[in-house]
Amino acid sequence: MSSVNNRMTASSIGNTARKLAAPAPAKERRRTPLVVVPAAPRRRSLMFVISCFTVLAAALVGVLTLNIQLSEGQYAIVNLKAQQSSLSKSNQELTQQVQNFSAPQNLAAKAGALGMVPSAGQGQIDLDNLTVTGKAVAAVKDPKSGLVQIAAPEIAGQLSVVTALPDQQPGQAQAPETKTKPVAPAAPEVPKVQLNGGSVPAPAQRTPGN
């Protein structure tokens, strides 16, 4: 209502000219009245700005979170890859040790060290026709009949399983076994810096109890 009143008062201000002849008033009436832009939408625009900022902030936070997530994922990948490579390396190392211990030379030497001797003669029992063929002879320890020992593999960095020659005393060959003992349990080296080709060390993890 007040705006209508305003309009009425506004249109009458400063109208000092006299009335002209007949056609003039019609023209006068057609003129669009000048109006002050209403101030009402001001509250709506504030809302709009706030919502804009909210969206912007949300978007920024979203992007930031996504970025953090991605980097975290990247760090996790680096960490897991470091773990994988160290596990596969230690697996390879242990496999290598098993292979070395099971090499025929090393096995034979160990067996000899335990006092085992090659069998002297075998017999065969055929269960189908209940016959015994061949002559089984009890194995005897005969130092003269011993075969020459083939040299153990010379793998660089690999612990030598056999140091004793075949004609040496069984007790002597026992020595390297004690020597290899400390290697068997992989030393739990905690703070290893895994670089994995990059320059950022993987996150160091504490072991439980540390």
Partner: peptide
């Protein structure tokens, strides 16, 4: 590898461990 890891952990300046492939013959 385990020794190489320990060397890396020492963090001595200028020391780098470079992985190489070594051929081994377990049965000699």
């Amino acid at each position: 590898p385990d020794v190489a890891d320990q060397i890396t952990a020492l963090n001595v300046p200028g020391v780098v461990t470079q992985g190489t492939s070594q051929r081994v013959y377990p049965d000699g």
